[in-house]
Amino acid sequence: MSKISIVIIPLIVLSIIIYGYSKKINIYDSFLEGAKEGLLATFNIFPPMIAMVFAINIFLKSDFIEFALGFLSPFLKFLNLPLEILPMALLRPISGTSTLVIMNELFVIHGPDSLIGRLASVIQGCTDTTFYVMSLYFGSIKVLKTKYALKVGLFADLCGIIASFIIVRLFF
């Protein structure tokens, strides 16, 4: 598996270059033109990125999540779900790095092959960080009115997380 992933990117690069030569275009000029666009795109992403990191980090540092967990725990016990997984499920759409850190901690404490370890793996793998992707993609083209995008993105996350709970129970 990992061997495949190792060759994929070099192969993509190789095919882009060879195809470019075969069509007789000035690949170096094209590259520079595109690279400049990349610089511009990063420039546009910068303000929304700062805004998001600011709000998310303040929220995370306040430990409000732990406070909210107190209310949710009876409900989870009723569903027979491990409490330890909840911070991950709640944070998944907001911050990819913090859920990655939590997942690693859960692996260390409970082991990757435990129910909690497997649940954490599937939750981490089932969705991407909605807030991050949204601010990145809409920020790059300066779209401010995102309409119903966040609603739909968060709904997809919710579906993925609920599905993770059910699927892990069925599989293992």
Binding site: V13, I17, Y19, S30, F31, E33, G34, A35, E37, G38
Partner: peptide, 8 residues
């Protein structure tokens, strides 16, 4: 983005 410009 440079590489993709070539592809484009």
């Amino acid at each position: 983005m440079g590489l993709m410009k070539i592809a484009e």
